[in-house]
Design a protein around this nucleic acid. Structure first.
Lengths: 109, 109
DNA sequence: AGTTTTTATCGTATATTTGCGATGGATATG
DNA sequence: CATATCCATCGCAAATATACGATAAAAACT
């Protein structure tokens, strides 16, 4: 598709948003935040999706740096990646708070 | 695709994230935050995209409630929707801060 | 060695997103 | 009235995303 030139910050933000842009992935992150031990199978049980699909969503989150998982082939254990999570949190937070309330009258009314 | 049952909050968050999941839309929001008068043509000039494409992205943002535009057919004027923006900001903020630092040792190490 | 359990990956089908040229409608301007 | 401007929308093509069954690999267990 050859995405044209955007700021790297704009691209980063969009990528982060894309990782969050599916209810299943939001749900997975919520599960990981509540539990301590997070085997893939446990997560599959919590979601109304097939194992292959969950595995795919986990990969998206991992590629986005939001979670980390051991490569133990017996039972894959996932958890929030603290560094990635903090980075994402700050990235988003900065962006939103860059803009403060419009206060005055809007331009198009 | 028949998306299976997720929380309405999870779905809302995912929808919001989807609206932000493209650098062009991030860029558009940034333009709208800086300028006062935001005619469609002005936005097109700022972006490396065709007018039709920009119009499409504007529609996505409008459907997400993040921006509003007058229907004046002469020159369409867009701006941030203060209510929608605040709602989105809070939705995201709440979700992120629901989870505080992991502190202790992680489960999968 | 065979079996079971767990999970990543492949292949495939379907749906959605993205981008853009072309079109049309509405309005101003000559 | 003819023409120019501005912009939403249509239609199409290409790229991605989503879902899942099937398969494979690795380890534990018999």
């Amino acid at each position: 598709m050859e995405t044209p030139p955007f700021t790297s910050k704009q691209t980063e933000l969009a990528c982060l948003a894309k990782a969050l842009a599916h209810p299943a992935r939001i749900a997975i992150l919520e599960v990981l935040r509540q539990r301590q031990a997070c085997y893939c199978g446990d997560i599959v049980e919590e979601l109304p999706l097939a194992q292959a699909t969950v595995s795919q969503h986990l990969k998206v989150l991992k590629d986005a740096g939001l979670i980390q998982g051991t490569i133990d082939p017996r039972r894959s254990c996932y958890c929030i990646d603290p560094e990635g999570w903090a980075r994402a949190h700050q990235l988003l937070g900065d962006w939103w708070t860059d803009y403060e309330a419009p206060a005055g009258p809007r331009c198009c009314e």
